[in-house]
Computed example of a mutant assay.
Amino acid sequence: MRRIVSVLCLCLVAACAPRGEILLVEDAALPARSIFVGTTRGPDPETGQDLGRGRLESLRFARYDVSVPPDRGPGDISYPDPRRAPDPARDFLTTGAEFYPQAPAFRADLRRALARNGGEAVVFVHGYNNTFAEGLYRFAQIGHDLKVPGVLVHYSWPSRSNVMGYAYDRDSALFARDGFEHLLREIRAAGARRIVVIAHSMGGALSMETLRQMAISGDTETLSRVNGMVLISPDLDVDVFRAQARRIGRLPDPFIIFTSRRDRALQLAARLTGESARLGNLQDVTPISDLKVTMVEVGAFATGEGHFDVAKSPALIALLGSTGEVAAVLEGDQTGRTGLIPGVVLTVREATRIVLTPVDELAMGLTN
């Protein structure tokens, strides 16, 4: 009964929340950051809406220029409401959109952007129950609030964008592996010297599966460019993760896993799969201690369902963004570092676990 009640509560919360949509406002005066996009989304088979839950076997390419509003708090996203005039001061807006008919045109634009940014590409893979706009605007918010360097590239896979579509999304994540592999190869062909993958929730499983199949196919050239990976609340079985990591071989370095003991979404996923935990709410580093990874526990900063605190918690954003450590990690500056920032550190064999504490609590502990 408790499981049923939990599912119903999550459904009610999701049903009440407004869904993100793209609103194009062509205003050159608005500051905007370009996000390149590779997607396997097709039209929704029920509504006909483009970039919906339909699955495309071929990869589509685009570039969106997204304006981040100044009048908001860290972690907040305000989607434009089509029933009123857009407000650049509080709404995330798309100020430009370019759709590429073929991969070479996409690659040429991406090559120019990479040349201006030292060859650094940061790729975001969204999680379960996301519309196209929600994934795009969330990446724009992460890039802005955490000061993510380099060229932003978003991989949007065909989520059903419905809280009851968990099984559909798990199948879609498997379906989308070839598209993600294709996108990574295009980024490498465009001249990327370094690729960092940031994946949330079910996107973590998709990303690991893609790297695994690239290792099997022997694409060492592209894999060698993926030299940084960040999994945020990965909805992934721990044993499956270990099997993927073994097949990949040398993992990207750094390899960071953000976990939370207060992640209610993963607690529910674990119960539904008959497990004690998913990788994203694992509390003991021992099961993955033979892997060179850094687990960062952020449960002390939990907001809402606690499933995306890295992007949504103002306190955690302030802690990570203000120190400049996120940018340093993504840029590969690992000299003398044991993790993101000072915290309670436990190292077991190859793996490191860091438990982050709010600054005020840390200060109280130092004075007591």
Rank of each mutant, 00 (worst) to 15 (best):
P43A: 10
A199S: 15
S233I: 03
R83Y: 04
F255E: 03
V151P: 06
V329W: 02
G218P: 12
R262D: 04
A62C: 11
F99A: 05
V66W: 13
G75I: 08
F258D: 09
G304D: 09
E325D: 06
Y79E: 15
H182Y: 07
V344W: 05
Y79K: 14
V122Y: 08
V66S: 14
R55Y: 03
S313E: 09
V163C: 00
L211H: 07
D253W: 00
V66T: 14
V355A: 12
S159N: 07
V13T: 06
F139Q: 10
A311E: 06
D44S: 11
L30C: 09
Y168F: 14
R53T: 12
L110T: 03
G54A: 11
D219I: 06
T352W: 01
D50A: 14
A351K: 07
S217W: 11
R160D: 15
V355G: 09
Y166N: 15
E305S: 15
D333E: 13
W157N: 03
Q49N: 06
P45Q: 09
V5L: 14
P234W: 11
Y128A: 04
I77P: 13
A315N: 11
L174A: 08
L268H: 05
L24E: 02
H200K: 06
A328V: 04
R84S: 15
L366Q: 12
S6A: 11
T40G: 05
P31R: 04
L268D: 05
S58I: 05
L51Q: 11
E275I: 07
A105L: 10
R41L: 06
P252C: 01
H182I: 04
R41S: 09
V7L: 13
D76R: 08
S217P: 04
I4R: 04
G73P: 00
G75N: 08
N117D: 07
